[in-house]
Amino acid sequence: MLVLAAWATATVDARSTGPGREVLRLLVQQRRITRAADIPLVRLGTTLLPVAAVLAAAVLPFGFRSVSDLPDGVVWFNAMEALAWAAVWLTGWAPNSTLSLIGGYRFLAQGLAYELPHMLAITTAALGAESLQVGAVVDAQSGLWFAVWMPVAFGIYLLSALAMAFWGPFDQPAGADVAGGAAGELSGVDRLVFLGGRWLLLVVAAAFAVPLFLGGGHGPLLPGWAWTVLKTAAVLGFLLWARRRVPTVRMERYVELAWVVLTPLAVAQALVVAVVVLAR
């Protein structure tokens, strides 16, 4: 299901070659890496990325059912998504190449910049539902979607969804200016696993916005799963559109925005939500 979604998004996004052809291309390509590279780390880093995405997806409800509706699913999601930090850093570090290493550094800086407002944003949603269980967050939105009464948290979440998948305007860790950055030295299967993992992560991050802020499977007429699919598609469509509108955001600029503007905004949003919850 996830893979299908990632596939579909990649198809919409593909500029010239379709993803099918790209996958084939990488499969026939030889796997080769730089000299004195740390091979186990390359393998670990590249495979960790899709694994992190799939593990994060375990708490993702499809309609109203998820693989496992953990009591602290929101925390689980955040923890798994943070595995991507290790994945990208290892992949950038292991090939023993400067530009690839710079890509790795960049993702750590990116993590520091986006994570703080991001955590506050998802905490706000959990606060609104008075539960860390994803199912409970969805149930709390049977009436009003959280996106409506916590728009700031929703906006920040969308930004950090892009940042955690280091995609679109946040693709600096794998940017063209460092000749592909963390992914720059990967070829063949390694590249396929790593970039495929990035697509999965993007889809999972976008899909998680649905239970957190867009009411999950709630909606008139259609069954829950259909609403999940529709809403996820809408979020992904928006992210794809947004990418065409803006250049890559450099962390040295974004970190300032994230800490000086977004974090206080997120705190204020959480405060408002907390007051509402207490008063009701």
Binding site: R32, T34, R35, V42, S97, T98, L99, A179
Partner: peptide, 23 residues
């Protein structure tokens, strides 16, 4: 076989990819 694709494919320091060294 494909084990042959040993990763030390000596492409040390292709331009701009100077390695962690004296590039």
């Amino acid at each position: 076989g494909h084990e042959g694709h040993r990763p030390n494919g000596e492409h040390a320091a292709h331009q701009g990819h100077g390695h962690m060294d004296h590039g």
